[in-house]
Write a protein that binds this DNA or RNA. Structure first.
Lengths: 193, 193
DNA sequence: TGAAATAAAGACCGTTCGGTCTATATTTGT
DNA sequence: ACAAATATAGACCGAACGGTCTTTATTTCA
């Protein structure tokens, strides 16, 4: 890993939480300079422009979250355990300290930044895919009733979680999120054989 | 209504869709000048600063949406009809052209603007209250089973709708939102007596 | 270890930002 | 209709913006 590659990665890791929090438009170059303790030369030697930093920051956050979720899922031995482990990542506040990048970047990019929107779109679809894979495997293994619709379940579950994250951030507490996560679990139990 | 009051209202109505779309940080004064065809004097004669325009814009959008929803609900004769009318407002794209202000302002304000966050908080709670009122009235009128938990239902339904709006905006189509709205309806039917 | 290659600093650039203020135009109430 | 009150235009301001470029410092590899 060359010096430049290391610096580039360092800039991304230092900027990502900031951009996730303050937004792309709301984060200035001086914010990034302060967070990295680098001068402009150090930043613009490694990135074309601010937008590139934003894009790489999103991709970094998305990958971080994905690996956290994948790890949680992989630790589950049954479909039920896999799903519950996944939900617990969202329930455990410190895993999502600065909010969900899909929600944050998605709402900002939807009307203004087609490339970023496309990246968020991929992230949504792969989050839903992670959920539907759990369900489909569960059906295959005779753990779950065939009555469960994996597509609908994954869409509904993804949506309600994102809505829950919004409520948690705005309301400032976990109460509603806990109700939501428990409801998902209770609904799901109906399909466990 | 004095000239100033009319101008003030006009500025809000012209700016609100813009700010809802591009965000608070992403909307500049020149954007607002262009949208209103007013010079700075005309704008700053009626508002203290940009933030006041943002706040008023949110309150305006929230009130607009609330009255649309209240109207839809009031046209329903049963709890079931009230809820379904409400859901159809979200299903009907052109009622929510520029996206949900709660989602857009909420995600931007959560970490950066405590006053705005407080306003969004109120909007969330009153949206949930509108839902729980429908359920509680329905129970009272013996239209709905007492097994339905109005608090949980309203929290879950609000969250899944907001998540659905996010998916609609990012994915660029209504398919997932339609699945979500139908799921809400199907789940609800189980409690209709 | 020393020369060539590369990375970072920071002065500098034009532009745009949010916001002020005075001069002019428009309402308003009589 | 006119005078007093009020609202808007737009020149102006300093600060901050994103971005460039040359100079200096640091890696890198022979």
């Amino acid at each position: 890993m060359s010096k430049a590659e290391r610096t580039r990665q360092f800039i991304i890791e230092a900027s990502a939480p900031l951009i996730n929090k303050k937004g792309m438009a709301g984060t200035s170059l001086s914010d990034i300079m302060e967070a990295t303790k680098l001068a402009k030369g150090g930043i613009y030697g490694n990135f074309e422009n601010k937008e590139e930093i934003c894009i790489e920051s999103f991709l970094y956050l998305r990958a971080q979250l994905a690996s956290k979720l994948d790890l949680a899922v992989s630790k589950g031995k049954s479909a039920r355990e896999k799903l519950f482990n996944l939900l617990d990542v969202y329930g455990n506040g410190n895993a999502m300290i600065e909010g969900c990048p899909i929600l944050n970047f998605g709402t900002e990019a939807d009307d203004t930044n087609p490339f970023m929107r496309e990246q968020v779109k991929k992230a949504i679809l792969s989050s839903q895919r992670r959920l539907s894979n759990i369900i489909e495997d569960g059906i295959q293994n005779k753990e779950l009733s065939q009555e469960i619709n994996s597509e609908h379940f994954s869409i509904n579950t993804f949506a309600i979680i994102e809505g829950g994250i919004l409520c948690r951030k705005v309301l400032g507490n976990d109460d509603q999120m806990n109700i939501i996560l428990n409801s998902i679990k209770n609904d799901f139990e109906r399909y466990v054989l």
